[in-house]
Design a protein around this nucleic acid. Structure first.
Lengths: 157, 157
DNA sequence: GTTCCTGCAAATCCTTTGCAAGTTC
DNA sequence: GAACTTGCAAAGGATTTGCAGGAAC
């Protein structure tokens, strides 16, 4: 059960550690493995809780620090939401942006080469060299919208 | 000098206060007036400093609270950047997004009806009702890019 | 043995809140 | 005078840092 998840990513992480004269540790292994098994878009707290189910003695600080390493290694990417950050896998994944439902918190990914191209064109017009971007669309997802309209219908039938 | 800036916005704010049984105060007037005279995209600290040049006794808390009111009144809009928020005028301004230069901090606005339309289409596909969005593009502006390449040329001529 | 890691507690940063005193209506 | 505002200090939440003890190399 433990061995087959994210083998490639684990190798990448190992290589990253070696190259930077950093050390392996059981904490780092557990955190990475948990991260790779999880749903996408977890907060530090989500990850900490899952990690602590396996190793209750792993602290929040270590989770923060390991997530930083995973980002440097190209394995995780931070989604800077309003109040807190969330993290998602980033290894060999194509670029995408996010819809975020304000009522249930669900996050949907989308890609749009057209939007990317338009961005690039506008940037070129003003001589701006793009390094990254954040494109988050807030609103209400399909199920929250229909739940809301059902509730509305009940109120004034 | 004092009277002609943002007359319309000041009326809107007055109306907003009345409608909500809130009170006028000199602090609120100074903060709004300072906000309206300023450059765009100020942080709370920027605004506080400018305000305190005119009325050193106005506190940071009041600036925060007044900015909240200005947002509710439709006069200001928050730009949620990474570390801290910035605020810009929002009255009768068309929707736009931002380029943010990581080296000098400059912020450039852009509008793209095409991007907006594409967003709407993608949202419609998944049944997502858009309420707002955040679209920030990070990188290096024209002058920072050319400054960097001049420095590079100097190093290896 | 040296260098790196870890977890705790404390510190930091930005923002909000409780409260007593002061203003506006 | 009732209701709202203000500024201070304290609280809050997310993230970072100092440090002494522990682990990896």
């Amino acid at each position: 059960m433990k061995s087959t998840v994210g083998r490639e990513e684990k190798e990448v992480f190992g290589a990253y550690l070696s190259k930077n004269h950093l050390k392996r540790s059981e904490q780092r292994e557990v955190i990475l493995d948990t991260f790779l098994r999880s749903d996408r878009h977890l907060s530090v707290d989500d990850l900490l809780q899952m990690v602590q189910k396996r190793r209750p003695d792993i602290g929040r600080t270590t989770v923060y620090r390991t997530l930083k390493l995973l980002q440097s290694a190209g394995l995780a990417q931070e989604l800077a939401l309003d109040g807190q950050s969330r993290f998602e896998r980033d290894y060999k994944r194509e670029h995408h942006d996010h819809f975020i439902c304000k009522s249930c918190g669900a996050i949907f990914e989308f890609t749009s080469p057209d939007i990317e191209r338009l961005q690039d064109e506008i940037a070129a017009d003003i001589g701006f060299a793009i390094e990254g971007h954040r494109h988050q669309i807030y609103g209400s997802c399909r199920s929250c919208t229909s739940r809301a309209s059902r509730a509305e219908a009940r109120r004034s039938p």
